[in-house]
């Protein structure tokens, strides 16, 4: 039985985590169909058709799916989902919002944030902020899985395109309405896709001081992230929070600046390849996970680092 991948996308493009989830689908050993529910979403469907391993693209194009409202989208997944054994979606905020609703409509079990597939019914996922990894077996006819993107490589591009098949859209249930969104604009790479991430904590002391990290980020083509304390204090936007309850990142290089390394923060970054910590307190817990630690005042170390980089 084929697997169904639910794409996260912005109509004109796929959210990259969709490609990582496609790799998880491939590991299930069946062919993969991908659903694009959206509005004016042909461009997203065309890029989905070129993901290696996708054998069919289902497109449901309707204003009802313009903002991937959970009510309408989950109803669509429930309508077509009974033909599949596995239904996957990346664990983005859309995936987390929509997939559990679809699971309950299908009276099926769901596992969140899977990081490994042991067999078609057995999966690994982190619990307790990543302090433990559970291996869970699912005894259910149908299994819904949200996929932690950092645990799977993005699927390759295919030279041939899978066929795109329009499916009937459902009605707008009309119980919720999209009002507006404010998306942060940045010329820097996206947090979850960047090769280098520089995160600041309460030690930065103000939003203005984050400029020090932006200057360094410009030299390294890095994304900037933050601890919860820095976000709560209003230094930077909410969606920069890295951690158990924020974004999960695993870049080649993670530079933690003026943040202590609470377990909730570590949960979001400790799979990074190389971790650097810069903190004036040599006892800060962040040094326990850092490959390279520098006990120094960030207000001296960061400008010096920026100046000395080419």
């Amino acid at each position: 039985m084929p697997s169904l991948l639910i794409a996260d996308h912005q109509n004109t493009a796929l959210v990259p985590a969709t490609r990582n989830a496609a790799t998880a689908c491939a590991a299930l050993g069946e062919e993969t169909h991908i659903l694009i529910a959206g509005h004016d979403c042909t461009a997203a469907a065309e890029s989905a058709a070129k993901i290696a391993g996708i054998t069919k693209v289902l497109i449901a194009d309707s204003p009802a799916y313009a903002h991937l409202l959970a009510e309408n989208t989950a109803a669509l997944i429930a309508r077509i989902g009974s033909a599949y054994r596995h239904i996957l979606m990346p664990a983005t905020t859309n995936g987390k919002n929509i997939l559990p609703r679809a699971a309950a409509l299908l009276d099926s079990s769901m596992l969140s944030d899977i990081i490994a597939i042991k067999s078609p019914d057995t999966f690994k996922r982190p619990i307790y902020a990543g302090n433990a990894i559970a291996t869970v077996q699912v005894a259910d006819e149908r299994i819904l899985l949200s996929v932690r993107a950092t645990a799977f490589d993005p699927a390759a591009e295919s030279t041939t395109a899978a066929p795109i098949e329009p499916i009937e859209a459902g009605e707008d249930l009309g119980i919720s309405r999209f009002e507006r969104e404010e998306l942060s604009k940045s010329d820097r790479p996206e947090l979850t896709e960047a090769r280098v991430v520089i995160s600041g904590g309460r030690g930065l002391q103000s939003g203005e001081n984050f400029q020090l990290l932006y200057d360094l980020a410009d030299k390294l083509d890095a994304a900037v992230g933050a601890s919860r304390a820095a976000v709560d204090a209003g230094y930077v936007a909410n969606d920069l929070q890295v951690g158990q309850t924020g974004r999960i990142v695993a870049p080649q290089l993670y530079i933690a600046v003026g943040l202590s390394g609470a377990i909730q923060h570590l949960a979001g970054m400790k799979e990074s390849k190389v971790i650097v910590a810069i903190n004036k307190d040599p006892e800060a817990p962040i040094f326990q996970v850092a490959d390279y630690g520098l006990a120094a005042d960030l207000f001296q170390a960061i400008p010096e680092l920026t100046t000395k980089l080419p």
């Binding site: 905020t93 859309n94 119980i175 309405r177 969104e181 942060s184 936007a237 969606d239």
Partner: peptide, 15 residues
């Protein structure tokens, strides 16, 4: 709080 920023919805009660 969504990836990339903030989104506002209105819901019919009960919700």
């Amino acid at each position: 709080e969504v990836d990339g920023g903030m989104q506002t919805l209105s819901l019919k009660l009960p919700a």
